[in-house]
């Protein structure tokens, strides 16, 4: 998707091409707290799309709206539509969604601490019905992608390092044989080198296994290095989007998200928020 194509307005064909399309959704927590104020985004099949923004911008909320994990937090999508493979998926349970091929890796990994790494991975295959052989094969595939986990197979996940837990969490999602993984802040709390390893693996999974990724990140630098396209969220709105390469060159992105300003740092608050783009329904 180029900026020009965006500007010309979304056509039906565009939407149909996208594996996932989120159309102008509003999310309210506890019936009163409006957190997402009309977010739209698209993820093409086979893409790696980054959802960027500061803490509290609404990244996690967007991912949970898609995976339908919001209900468990008393959140609700009150407007807009979410289409996966062209079909509305808001009414589906997380269980149905995982079966359809959408799975989330939550912020903070959320491994099952009292289960071994092996068992953690196997829980990812909970919804599958294609028999032991296939599951066993995928288990070995996960260990091929994350050789570090191989030695920790029988360790309780609670006793493994942050990096190993992140690998376990991603591996667990892979065990569901997803078409799309919603990956929330994979870099959080990890040493820079590990962050690169994780993102390298994401890239390889994308290229070799054909898994599509929508990833939320505060680490704009790394995310834009590996993603093909990016959306920047601010206060529950998409304020900017474009090809990753274009975003990397964008002066404002450089200044506020990459910390590369040449003219001395300005305070975040001194600058007007981007006007919301006229998009869907506009």
């Amino acid at each position: 998707m180029s900026d020009a194509a965006q500007a010309s307005g979304e056509t039906v064909a565009d939407t149909a091409d996208a594996l996932l399309s989120v159309n102008n959704i509003e999310v309210i927590y506890d019936h009163v707290i409006l957190v997402l104020k009309g977010v739209s985004l698209e993820v093409p099949a086979g893409g790696i799309v980054a959802l960027l923004g500061a803490n509290g911008a609404g990244k996690t909320t967007t991912l949970k709206a898609i995976s339908n994990l919001l209900h468990a937090e008393r959140g609700e999508v009150t407007k807009g539509a979410i289409l996966f493979e062209g079909e509305a998926v808001q009414a589906l349970t997380p269980n149905d969604l995982v079966k359809r091929g959408v799975i989330q890796v939550m912020e903070g990994r959320h491994c099952f601490e009292h289960l071994t790494v092996d068992e953690n991975l196997l829980t990812g295959a909970y919804t599958r019905s294609d028999g032991r052989a296939g599951i066993q094969r995928d288990l070995e595939m996960v260990y091929d992608y994350f050789p570090r986990l191989q030695q920790r197979r029988t360790s309780l996940a609670g006793y493994t390092s942050g990096g190993e837990q992140q690998m376990t969490a991603i591996g667990r999602a892979l065990m569901a044989r997803p078409k799309m993984i919603l990956l929330d802040e994979p870099s959080m709390g990890l040493a820079p080198q590990l962050v690169e390893t994780i993102f390298d693996t994401v890239k390889r999974l994308n290229e070799q296994e054909g898994v599509t990724f929508l990833l939320a990140e505060q680490n704009t630098n790394v995310a834009l290095k590996y993603a093909t396209y990016g959306y920047i969220l601010e206060n529950g709105r998409v304020v900017l989007d474009g090809d990753a390469s274009a975003l990397r060159e964008n002066e404002d992105v450089k200044e506020f998200y990459l910390g590369l300003s040449s003219s001395g740092r300005k305070s975040y608050r001194d600058v007007k928020h981007y006007k919301r783009r006229k998009r869907w329904l506009a």
Partner: peptide
């Protein structure tokens, strides 16, 4: 295993599709 997973972390259990 799913029962133990739920006991450990409801949210994570939901996220992998355990009902």
């Amino acid at each position: 295993r799913a029962l133990r997973a739920v006991a450990d972390d409801h949210q994570a259990a939901l996220s992998v599709g355990i009902s």
